[in-house]
Amino acid sequence: MQKNLVTLAAALLCATAAQAQSSVQATGLLDAYVGSMRYAGDAERTSTVGSGGLTTSWFGFKGSEDLGGGLKANFALTGFMRMDTGEAGRFPNDPFFSRDANVGLSGSFGALTLGRGLAPNFLPSVIANPLGDSFTFAPLILHMNVPLFNASHWQATTPSDTGWSNEIIYTTPDFSGLKANLHYQFGEVPGNNSKKNIGVNALYFNGPLTLTAFYEHDQISNPAPTTYFGTTKKDWMLGGAYDFSIVKAYLTYGEAKSDDSPIKAKTTQVGASIPLGGPGKVLASWAQTKLTDVDLKRKTFTLGYDYNLSKRTDVYAMFMNDRITDQDTGNSFGIGMRHSF
């Protein structure tokens, strides 16, 4: 009996040690909304149950293993999904693990990641606007990342998506709130291996102050890699936020240009997050993009309210006004719910 107890205790001790050294987590965020949508240039309004009102829905697995000496092995396999239909991806033919598919090492040197991961533009753009990564209602994200397949023929100003495949990312250690990410995407273009995407971003957090920036030099399309643009596209952005307690203010400015065109896209965004009603907050953001040489502007304004029911669940209501030069104005509104796990 005593021998059996010793054996059981040893087994439990080993299991505990293994648990402390290695972990795998099923994680994700689900976001669905009901609304009436009309973007600038749309001929008619669309009533919809949609996915990703404030955050693109995703799910997957993340994990790490403690290798000793402060060194860890990490992995992430996460994919986007559409809550309204249950389909994988943000759109047809999006890779299954389109959000993350990578392994890497982290330690006192920072972190090194291989595989599919974020593009340099993503974190700075979502951190520096009050509606975060909303590809439905955030004016800055709409201008940068969402083309319109309507009469306006609006093209996203970000050259190559918000995620890159075939990528190496080096993340620096945290220097008193400052951290940078260096991105390199292999083009893998047969017969022309010199084509690539490179970029860098920087994030700074110090109390109420947030500062961020990114730069990209892109020659390869995404999310489907190994396709050469035929030119080089460059874009950059500076952004920041300051929390005054009664209001958190946001400001960004960025430019995008292709080497084969004289047109430059200049985007300014201002926003605010105002605490109201306990765990709730009013969200407001306005963005304007000017296209030089063609006298074209897009102006988008969103006003909404987000209320936290718990640490993992919130409900929201949004109204958006969208205008593009010489196009019909679009007004949209939606009510939705997010749940993270």
Rank of each mutant, 00 (worst) to 15 (best):
Q2E: 08
N4S: 13
A10W: 09
A11E: 14
L13A: 15
A18E: 12
V24D: 12
Q25C: 07
L30A: 13
A32C: 05
G35K: 07
E44P: 12
E44M: 09
V49G: 04
V49S: 07
G50I: 08
G53F: 02
L54T: 06
S57L: 03
W58T: 00
S64Q: 14
L71W: 12
L77N: 12
T78K: 10
T78M: 06
G79F: 02
M81S: 04
R82E: 09
M83S: 14
E87N: 13
A88H: 05
P92K: 05
F96K: 08
F96T: 10
D100V: 09
A101D: 03
N102R: 14
N102E: 11
G107N: 10
G107T: 07
G110H: 09
A111W: 09
L114Y: 10
G115T: 07
A119I: 03
L123N: 10
P124V: 02
D133Y: 10
F135G: 12
H153Q: 11
W154Q: 05
Q155C: 02
P159G: 02
S160E: 01
W164T: 07
E167K: 04
I169S: 07
I169R: 15
T172K: 12
K179G: 09
K179I: 08
N192E: 15
N192L: 14
L203K: 11
Y204H: 14
Y204M: 07
F205K: 15
N206H: 14
T210F: 12
T212N: 08
A213H: 07
F214K: 05
E216P: 11
E216F: 02
E216G: 12
E216I: 13
D218S: 12
S221Y: 02
T226E: 05
Y228K: 14
D235H: 10
W236C: 06
M237P: 04
L238W: 06
A241L: 08
Y242S: 00
I246W: 13
G254T: 00
E255T: 05
T267K: 00
G271N: 00
A272M: 02
S273R: 06
P275Y: 04
L276W: 10
G280N: 13
V282F: 00
A284T: 06
S285L: 01
S285W: 00
T292V: 01
D293V: 10
T300Y: 00
T300R: 01
L303H: 07
Y316K: 02
I324V: 13
D328P: 02
T329V: 13
G330T: 02
G334Y: 01
M337R: 12
R338T: 03
